[in-house]
Amino acid sequence: MTTTLPTQSERKKFSPPSIPWVVTFVYLIAMLLVPTIALILKAATLSPQRIWEIATSPVALSAYDVTFVTALFAGSINGLAGLIIAWVLVRYDFPFKRILDSLLDLPFALPTAVAGLTLATVYSENGWIGSLFAPFGIKIAFTRLGVFVAMLFISLPFVVRTVQPVLQESEREIEEAAWALGASQWQTFWRVVLPPIMPAVLTGVALGFARAVGEYGSVVIVASNLPFKDLIAPVLIFQRLEEYDYAGATVIGTVMLLISLLMLLAINLLQAWGRRYGN
């Protein structure tokens, strides 16, 4: 082996030792798959009527509403804001741009408990920002708006980070061609700049939405966690477990898991769409 050069066919057969494969599969099965299957099978031991009853109980429905609708709002607002932030970072120069760019990763790196703590303080009635809204009768912390702000915080970087590289690679010549052909700047943006970055924007929104839907740490601190008011589904699961209501926790947990899987599928499809644009 050491003295002879491998032939073409031997080189094609070049494969890593099987240890990485064994480690990958054993670890994934033990750490991810068995727990996931345990949840699904546990849910399957319940009768369909019972599952339906728990999954569509009024408390659960209101929790889905708070979770998904608020996350959708947060994701969409960050879709728009993230697009503008990415645009500004790629196209304009201004002082402290690099620091600003680095700081955008804060929601990825900052533990969610810290985010919740500081948002609850800042957006409370006598907090720095909350006190600006209080005179208008707008309460943010410990209401659904607080949930929204927490979701806004944790899903902020996704769109920026998915759009930035695509925008960097987009060719300025095409925009110039559009201008030269008489398109207004608005038309150029709408018809030339936006379509290629749209998959990246949607991927970012989907990632941010998925993250916001599953978020627990920051929301549980910034919200009052009252049913029918600002209780999100992950907190509901937590409360069910605290009451030793395993059936309730399992069913709502399974609903959340299935939605996560759907989101994962959607994100994969969006990324595939983006790659097609990339070529």
């Binding site: 798959l33 949840l39 627990y216 996560s260 899987l261 989101m263």
Partner: peptide, 23 residues
């Protein structure tokens, strides 16, 4: 396989904890 590795990114941490409790 890549999607399975990504699973913890999209599963709520509370659901992850629940799975471990159920196991």
């Amino acid at each position: 396989l890549i999607s399975i590795i990504d699973l913890p990114f999209s599963v709520s941490p509370v659901v992850a904890g629940l799975m471990i409790v159920l196991l």
